[in-house]
Nucleic acid binder design. Structure first.
Length: 467
RNA sequence: CGGGGAGUGGCGCAGUCUGGUAGCGCACCCGGCUGGGGGCCGGGCGGUCGCAGGUUCAAAUCCUGUCUCCCCGACCA
C-alpha cells in the first residue's frame, strides 16, 4: 500500500503499477501526454456516457468549438490570462508561414465560449443558454501523472449564461450536485466532500468555485470536478449582453464547469488495491468474466450456456477460454484489470453442479448452483457497487478528524482530512499550511452543506494534502 | 531555473572503477509436460551499448563534446 515517503511528494508507486498492469494507459511520445489503451478508454467511455446523460438531464446541450483560440481572446479577461499563461501551448506557424496572431491550443474554452455566447444571445428570451462541450485540452504542466494530470486531457466543459446572478448560482450548484456528485458517488462509488474553494484555490476568473473532493486510499485529496460562477467577469470582457424585458441592455451572469479523465485516476486511487484495479460495476468494460478453467468439452459447453444467460441479462461480459495459459496467470490478469465479478467453471465445479463466483471487492469466494449462476452474478454486481462505495465512505470517515488549531490540522493532514473552523485558520493559516504542502480543499458549513458564499460566518475548512 | 540520477534487445536491469569484441530476468515464438492462483523442462528470435569525435592492436568500458529522458522544488483539472 502507499507509503508516505517524503513530506512533499508521496506519490504511491502502486498507482503507476496499477495503470500499467491493468493496461489502462501509457506515456505518450510528447512529454506528459498519455496514450489511453482500450481497457482504459472503455472505462472512460462508460463514464463519459453517464456524465453526458446527467448533463443533458440538467438541461445543457452539446456543441463543439475550435481547438485553436486567437491569443487575443485570452487577454480579454485579466485574471484568466494571468492564471493560464505559464501553461499554454501556442501555435506560431501554419501553412509554412508565421501566423499574424499566434493561436493558443485551448487550455479551457471560457474565452471562446465568451465570444460565441455574445453572438448567440440577444434577448432575455435566449436565456438561460446552457452549453456543454466534450473535447481535449492542453495545459503544459510541469509535472504530470497518467490520468491525474497529463498535458493533454479529455474532458467536458460546460458554459452557461443567465439573466440573474441567482440563476447562475443555482445552475452551478445544480450541476455540482446532480451531475458531478451524483456520478462520482452513484457511478464511480467515490464518496466526496463538497464545498467552496477559498479565494486562493479558486479558478482563474471565477467569483465562486464549487468542488468535489475525493479521498484517495492513502488519505490524500483529489479534486474530481469543479463548477464555477464567473459573475459578470467574462460577460463584461466579451460583451455577453441581452435586452431585458424592460428593454434595457444587461450583462449576463455566466458559469463554467468541468470534469476530466482525471476521474479515471480517482477511480484507480480510491478503489485500487495491491492486487490491482477494482472497478465499480457501472464503469466496468467487463462486469463479469467467465473463466473456463480447463479445455474440456463439458466445461466449454457450460461456459457457453452461462455466456448466453448473462448476455440475456444485459451484462457486459468477457469469456476467458485461454486454456493454453496457466490458470493463475489468467485469474491474476482479470484481477489486475479490476473486473468486479468472476465466474470460474472447471471440472471440479461441474462435478458439484456449481460455478465459483468471486467478487473483486473482497467478498469470499462462493459456489453457486449452475442454474442460479447468471442471476447470482447479476446480484453480485449490485452488491459490489454498493460495497465499494461503503468501503470508501468508511475510509473517508475514519480518516477525517475535527481539530482546533492549525498545527493539529497540519499534523492530521498526514493521515487524511482535517476539519477546522475557518475562523481559526483563515487566509494567513492557509498560507502557512500551503508552505508545508497542505491545502484548504474546501469550505463548508458545520453540517456539511454548501455555503452561499465563502464569506459566510462559522464555516469549516477541510485541510489535506492533495494530488 | 536550482539540486540529484539515468541512457545497453519490446520492458526492467547487470557489465563501466580494473578496456579483450555483450549478458540476465520478464515478454515474445516453437515443442512438450501441466492445469482450481503469476507452473515446469527444452529449444529459439531479437541489441552497430543515446549521438559525434578522440586515445588504443582492441572501447559499452578511458577522454572531449553533445543530445535526450527521469526524479525533487516552484505552477496546476
Amino acid at each position: 500500500m502507499a507509503v508516505l515517503t517524503s513530506q512533499h511528494d508521496d506519490f504511491p508507486r502502486w498507482y503507476q503499477d496499477v495503470v500499467a498492469k491493468a493496461e489502462l494507459a501509457d506515456n505518450g511520445p510528447v512529454r506528459g501526454t498519455m496514450v489511453i489503451r482500450p481497457w482504459g478508454y472503455a472505462i472512460w467511455e462508460l463514464l463519459q456516457a453517464e456524465l453526458d446523460a446527467h448533463i443533458k438531464r440538467a438541461g445543457a446541450e452539446n456543441v463543439y468549438l475550435p481547438l485553436l483560440i486567437p491569443e487575443g481572446y485570452l487577454r480579454r479577461e485579466a485574471e484568466h490570462i494571468e492564471g493560464f499563461s505559464p501553461e499554454l501551448a501556442v501555435v506560431t506557424h501554419a501553412g509554412g508561414k508565421q501566423l499574424e496572431e499566434p493561436a493558443v491550443i485551448r487550455p479551457t474554452s471560457e474565452t471562446l465560449f465568451g465570444e460565441y455566447l455574445a453572438r448567440w444571445i440577444q434577448s432575455y428570451r435566449d436565456l438561460p443558454l446552457c452549453l456543454n462541450q466534450w473535447a481535449n485540452a492542453i495545459r503544459w504542466e510541469l509535472r504530470t501523472r497518467l490520468f491525474l494530470r497529463t498535458s493533454e486531457f479529455l474532458w467536458q466543459e460546460g458554459h452557461t449564461a443567465h439573466a440573474a446572478q441567482g440563476d447562475a448560482a443555482a445552475y452551478a450548484r445544480r450541476i455540482h450536485a446532480d451531475v458531478y456528485r451524483a456520478v462520482l458517488e452513484g457511478v464511480l462509488a467515490i464518496p466526496v466532500l463538497t464545498g467552496l474553494k477559498t479565494e486562493a484555490e479558486r479558478f482563474a476568473g471565477a467569483t465562486t468555485t464549487l468542488t468535489c473532493e475525493g479521498m484517495m486510499r492513502d488519505g490524500k485529496a483529489l479534486q474530481l470536478a469543479t463548477s464555477h460562477e464567473l459573475g459578470q467577469n467574462f460577460a463584461r470582457a466579451f460583451d455577453i449582453t441581452y435586452t431585458s424585458e424592460s428593454g434595457a441592455v444587461e450583462h449576463c451572469w455566466t458559469t463554467s464547469w468541468g470534469s476530466s479523465t482525471r476521474m479515471v485516476g480517482g477511480l484507480i486511487m480510491c478503489h485500487g488495491d495491491d492486487a490491482g484495479l477494482r472497478l465499480a460495476p457501472a464503469v466496468a468494460p467487463a462486469q463479469v468474466v467467465i473463466v473456463a478453467v480447463k479445455d474440456d468439452p463439458e466445461v466449454l459447453a457450460t461456459v457457453e450456456r452461462l455466456e448466453r444467460e448473462l448476455d440475456e441479462l444485459g451484462i457486459r461480459l468477457r469469456v476467458d477460454r485461454r486454456t493454453d495459459l496457466g490458470l493463475g496467470r489468467r485469474l491474476t490478469d482479470w484481477e489486475l484489470k479490476g473486473v468486479p465479478v468472476r465466474l470460474e467453471v472447471g471440472p471440479r465445479d461441474l462435478a458439484a453442479g456449481t460455478a465459483s463466483l468471486v467478487r473483486r471487492d473482497g467478498a469470499p469466494r462462493i459456489a453457486v448452483a449452475l442454474d442460479d449462476a447468471a442471476a447470482g452474478a447479476r446480484d453480485a454486481l449490485g452488491q459490489a457497487q454498493a460495497a465499494l462505495l461503503s468501503q470508501a465512505r468508511s475510509e473517508l470517515e475514519r480518516r477525517t478528524v475535527d481539530v482546533e488549531t492549525l498545527e493539529e490540522a497540519i499534523e492530521a493532514s498526514g493521515e487524511g482530512f482535517a476539519r477546522i473552523d475557518w475562523a481559526a485558520c483563515g487566509v494567513e493559516g492557509e498560507r502557512r499550511a500551503n508552505a508545508v504542502g497542505v491545502t484548504v480543499r474546501c469550505l463548508m458549513r458545520a453540517d456539511g452543506s454548501i455555503p452561499d458564499t465563502a464569506e459566510e460566518d462559522d464555516l469549516v475548512a477541510v485541510l489535506a494534502r492533495a494530488y
